[in-house]
Structures are given as C-alpha cells and as structure tokens.
Nucleic acid binder design. Structure first.
Lengths: 349, 349
DNA sequence: CAGGAAAATGGTAGCGCTGTCATGATAGCG
DNA sequence: CGCTATCATGACAGCGCTACCATTTTCCTG
C-alpha cells in the first residue's frame, strides 16, 4: 500500500509533478553511491573519474537500465551532437550516397544525422534550417550553394560550422564539391572529339536542378567556341528512366538530325539508352548517348554508358572529416575542397 | 557603453553565466509586452491567446529573428516531435522509398525524422534505439520485426508508439508490411506455371536479409509440394547489379541445367539480365529470370523483368498515417496492415 | 614529512522552455 | 444586478542534465 509508488498521494502537494517514470542520472548516482555530477562524468568523460567510481556507475546504469536523456544534456551543454543534413531529394540516389558517406564517418564519431528533404524548394529549405537550428545542431550540411535570402541571413548569423556540398564555389563556410561547369565542358569536349556536331543537351527541371544547368553552361560554352549551335531540351518531370525515354523521343521528333544527346544525368541517359534498344536504334551508330554521375546502371547496360564519374560517397566522407576536424577545434587548412570528376568513356558515344 | 550588451560586467558575479547569445522566448515576450508563457502560447497554441497578443508576439519574433529552442521545449514538455526511423541500409533504394513515404506524411504534420542506419547489424540497431530513446522521440519506426534481446527489452518498456514496417507478423506494437513467404510462394508458383522445373533461388547474405530468406522459404515450400528440388545459391556480397552478374555466372557453372533463376531482388535480377545480354544469352529462352520489388529499372530492360511489385512509398505513407493517428490520441482499429504485393509478369520468364 | 601540484569529487545554479494552477477580465443569464 | 461560466493571462516551479567553481583527497618531490 505505502510502497514507493510514483503516484503516492503526498500530504498536500500544491502542484502535481509531471515527472516521467524514466530512470534519471541522479538515481544512477544514488545507486552507485556518488554524486550526480560524478555519474555524469563517468559516462561522458570517463578519464576524469576514478576507476572505482566509473565501475560502480556503469554497474548502476546496467542494473537500472538507465538511458541518458540527451535532450536534457543538450540543453545544459548547448551541444547536441546532432548534424543537420539537408538534401533536395531522396529519390535521386546521388544524394543518398553522399548521405551514406556522411553518416559512416559522422556516426563513427558519435554524431547523429537529422535529415531534411527540400524537394528542390528553397523556401522549404529555410523552414528546415530554422527547425534544425532550434535543435542546436552542432553543424549543418546542405547540398548546394543557393539559399533564399532569409535562409542566408539565418545561416550567416549562426556560429556553427556550415558545410555546403556537391558543387564548388563561394560558399558560406566550408565547401566540398566539384566544378559542374567544367564537367559540362568536359563531356561536350568529348562529344566533339568523337566527331559529333549535332548535339542536344537534355535536362529535367533545370531551374530546380541548377547544377545540371551549370553543366549545360559548360557544354554550351564549348560548342559556342567551335561555332556549333547548342540546343537545349528541358523536360518537365524529374530525372528518371522513364523521363529519359521520353527525352529521347522528343529529341528525335524535334531535332531529327541529332547525332548525340548529352543528358543531364545517368538516369535520363540510361532510360534513353534502354528505350533506344527497345526501338531497335543503334547506339552510338544512330544516336550517341552520354550521361553524368557514373551510376552502376550505366556500367551494366550494353553498350556501356559514357558518363562522368562523380565521387559521391567520397564527397560525403570528406565533408564529414572536415566537419569533424572543425568541430574538434582543429584548424581548417582549406575551406574548399575540389573532389574532381572523371570522364568515363563507354561504348555509347 | 552601458547598453544592454549580454556580457555587461555585473558588479560581482559569483559565477560566470554561459548563456548563448541566442534570442530567447523571454526576450520576445518582453518586446511584445506580454509574459513568456503567453508568448509560448501565441506560438504553440495560437487559438488560446487574443488576436492582439498573438500579433505582437509574431511581430516581435520577426523583428528579433527568434528561433525557438526545440531542445528546451522538448525537455519541458517531454514531447519532441521527432520520429526515429531505423533502416538496415541506405544503398538499397527500397528503404529510401519507404523513408520518403514516411517523411512526406510525417513532415506535413510537423514531425522531424531522426534517421539511423544499422547496416544489417542488430547490435548497431540496439545502440541506435538507445540513442533515439534518449532524444525522447515521439515514436519509432524500424524496418523488420527482428531485434536483439536488449533491444527488445528496451522497446517493450517504452511507452510510445513503435511501428515495424516491411514485413508482416507478430510485432511489438504497430505493423505495416507484406507477407514475404507468400511473395516467395507467388513467384515460385509463377515459374512452375510457366513450365520451368530446374529453378535456382539466388540471394545475397540471407542471414542478414532475412526477408529474402523468408521469400526463399515460400519458394522452397512450393517446389517441395511439386516434388521439385530447390537449390539455393547464396552470394556473399550485398545485392547489386554486379552481384547479379556474378550470381548468373555461378548458377550457370554450378547448375548447368538451370532453366530459371529466382533472384531475391531486382538489383540482382537486372544485373543478371543485363549480363546475360552481354554474353549473348537469350532471356528467357536460355535462362528465365525473376526478381522482387518492382524497381523501375526492371521495367526498362528488354525483356521486361518479371517481378513482384511491393508498394514501398505506400508502406511508408500508411505507416506514417497510422502513427499520426496514434500520436494524436485516436483509436487504432488495426495494429497490423497488409499492404500486399502484385505479381508483375514481364518477358523475362 | 612538509609543501604544493594534480586528481577526484561535490554544491550550486541554471540551460530555455512549458505544465500546472491561480487570478483577473469578460460575458451570459435569470 | 449578482452570480457563475468562459476566456485570457500570468506566477511558479521544474524537466534532467552539465558548466562553473570550490573543496577534498591523493600523489609526488626534495
């Protein structure tokens, strides 16, 4: 009856307490016969307490099934070990691979990822940033250098590391990526070297996927230098195999003399290549096809897809390493890292 | 000089304060001429304050650039609006699609996803669960029904909704998924109907991907009922196009009479199909190929891949809806939801 | 063994917010 | 007009933890 039930009616409590029945650090400390602060240290900076204290705390943790309340810890220390990661899409496997690289490296250091998806909407990005700052994230990773005004202001006044990945340029803080204009130039150069002159660039929603439009800029510049026209076909759906097939059909209808198509990414290119096969078109005899990213799929179709290999997981890992370096207070030698890219010529061009 | 700088040297402060320079709700309240609690209500339950109070609070928020400290809010209310999501892999696009479905639906209700990746390691899952419980997550979503003992204990004592997705069975709380044994039976039945008798099942790391091994169980049962042998080839790499190509080679070497291969998933199957094409093998004439998941890729290869379509995004959306229903205190009519699957016959069998 | 440095431990006071209750202001009703 | 429902607001305390400083204990070293 008068057991230590949590709801034991106190004599005349002016106010009901709302404590959860969770085991707290104080209870652990009590069980271990030390003060709460020592228990805290035993768990968070083990080398600052004696072996005996550490041992008895760990035993008490085990015995009581204590799970640290990270929310309370973060509030008290204003450090959360959370890293906000904001990407424009989860469907596009490219970003997932970057996330994987980040997660491997950050996870090993005890950081947790708080994931946000903008669906290529900069206003949505701003909302996510606000939310994430509210979680006192230790750092923020975002795909791309473009933000809306409010977001820019918010980030500029934030005093934690910011890592912008994917592309290279003048960023807010740290930056790991590659030069998309150069990548576009590279592929266009390759197509011209191969002797193609009627080349169409096909992208999907370029106003959103502005990295693809930067590649088009590079592509266009090279063709212009050669005095060649650089038609652009923009699809209204997001990149996918299906969209690639449609892109092929539209190009053939709209620009019948086309010799080569430079697709904004491998999903589109592979979709076009597979569609061409279904229609009995010869690649590259009837039409040459090139992509971007170096997805595994491109290496397994016949002919192999000519593409530009972007080191995506590597980008994530490098970004994570640089963040960790910064977060542990070390000097950052370079704010900007170019991970480069590789032209991978297959049989499709 | 004597402005209200945050670091104004107090006369004789016994202790240095470590306040961040962040704008707090109290400052907003002061600027708006109301008490902090009214400011809190103006932001979190707007219909509980007068229009005038709400307006002045919102103006003050705007003016000061206030960003709510969600950590403090969560600690005080012990509600975080975070949803833990634990998946075994990010490379496998299947889980990413489920995450996308979850995120769409949960995001619309103001929940944030805390993402964890176990790499198919149940001990790692336990660690993630501990961490996530420490964040006072509102709910937890995990892929699969299997957990290690410690994890099971932890979850069983946790008093928030738990949603187990992907497969169907006796779960801890809520469950949305499909019957993998039935899916395996379905595909095996199809292959037998088509007249194939020498059928090999090819999976990758079945001890980890136990849903694939459940499909094999179904497959095996059907063949056994027909008195047919059911050889299994297990690859030691994770599912990928490359692994599928290797699987095909191994099957041809080890079981030369094989008429059909039932692959554990579409990545493997598509890899094998593309490899067969490169080698000049006729599909399904020389060898029939079937997969599982219904990835877009399978629909774009020639011949189209016979596969089983699993509603992945739908699974995520349904799981999210059920969670939201539970979190908003409504009754849950059914703890278990079968999202089903569809046999999709292509030219590959 | 004195003297001082280093290591181990603890007391106190919040981190910024919200749940609980109490109170004042406004409205409703016979 | 008095009395009760309703709304709007505020005071208080504390969620569980850690930073800061102070104190005690241990360990050297000459």
């Amino acid at each position: 009856m008068s057991k230590d039930s949590p709801n034991a009616a106190s004599p005349s409590p002016a106010r009901q307490r709302r404590s959860s029945d969770q085991v707290t650090l104080s209870q652990v400390a009590q069980a271990a016969g030390v003060s709460p602060i020592t228990a805290s240290r035993a768990l968070n900076s083990p080398d600052k307490v004696s072996d005996s204290a550490r041992l008895s705390v760990l035993q008490a943790v085990e015995k009581l099934g204590y799970v640290p309340n990270l929310v309370a810890g973060s509030l008290a220390s204003s450090r959360s070990r959370l890293i906000a990661v904001i990407v424009p899409s989860l469907i596009n496997s490219v970003f997932v691979e970057v996330i994987k690289g980040l997660q491997e490296t950050l996870g090993a250091e005890g950081y947790q990822i708080l994931l946000g998806n903008t669906d290529y909407d900069l206003d949505r990005e701003y909302q996510l940033v606000r939310t994430f700052l509210g979680w006192s994230c230790s750092a923020l990773v975002t795909a791309g250098l473009r933000h809306n005004k409010a977001c820019h202001t918010l980030l500029a006044n934030w005093d934690h590391p910011i890592m912008e990945v994917m592309e290279l340029g003048k960023g807010m803080d740290l930056n790991v990526g590659l030069d998309h204009v150069a990548a576009g130039r590279c592929m266009a150069g390759h197509l011209i070297d191969k002797g193609y002159r009627h080349i169409v660039y096909v992208g999907a929603r370029l106003s959103q996927d502005y990295r693809a439009s930067m590649r088009f800029d590079g592509h266009k510049a090279v063709l212009k230098e050669k005095g060649i026209d650089a038609p652009l076909l923009e699809l209204d759906t997001l990149g996918s195999l299906q969209a690639g097939a449609e892109g092929l059909a539209q190009v053939l209808a709209q620009y019948p003399h086309t010799q080569a198509i430079h697709f904004a990414n491998d999903d589109l290119a592979a979709g076009a290549l597979l569609a061409a096969q279904r229609q009995g078109l010869n690649v590259p005899g009837d039409i040459a096809i090139a992509g971007f990213n170096g997805l595994p799929l491109g290496q397994h179709v016949t002919p192999q897809l000519t593409t530009i290999l972007s080191p995506r997981e590597e980008m994530g890992r490098l970004a994570a390493k640089e963040l960790i370096r910064r977060l542990s207070g070390k000097n950052v030698y370079r704010r900007q890292h170019d991970v480069g890219f590789t032209l991978q010529t297959g049989g499709s061009t």
